[in-house]
């Protein structure tokens, strides 16, 4: 199956290497999911630490989560450098999760 640049007819039809497409598709999808997951957990923990009711914080973050994942996903697809996408998504997810875990420890201590 050839992947053809659509709609923009001014650009010549270029074949995209399948491996690169797969890499980008998988990274943008799972990366933005992981990033958003971490972001949500961090947000809930941080808001709780600031004294917001747990369920309030959860509800607010879950509504926000889908706007975040939409933006992050689109960015991951449009960004030039794959390594930058890797860095931001994987690094961000890890940092957010670690921070959420840390804040939780402090609250419960």
């Amino acid at each position: 199956m050839s992947i053809v640049s659509d709609q923009t007819s001014s650009v010549s039809r270029s074949k995209l290497p399948v491996a690169i497409v797969f890499h980008r598709v998988a990274l943008s999808l799972f990366g933005s999911y992981a990033f958003t997951w971490g972001f949500t957990a961090f947000g809930v923990a941080a808001l709780s630490a600031l004294g917001v009711d747990f369920h309030e914080a959860e509800t607010a973050m879950l509504i926000l989560a889908f706007l975040v994942i939409l933006a992050v996903f689109l960015w991951a697809f449009a960004a030039r450098s794959l390594s930058l996408v890797w860095l931001v998504l994987a690094g961000g997810a890890a940092l957010f999760c670690a921070a959420a875990w840390g804040i939780q420890k402090i609250i419960l201590a």
Partner: peptide, 15 residues
């Protein structure tokens, strides 16, 4: 995004 049931379960339980 089941954060309250996984990563933040201890916090959720306390709440």
């Amino acid at each position: 995004f089941p954060v309250a049931e996984t990563l933040l379960k201890p916090l959720h339980h306390q709440h």
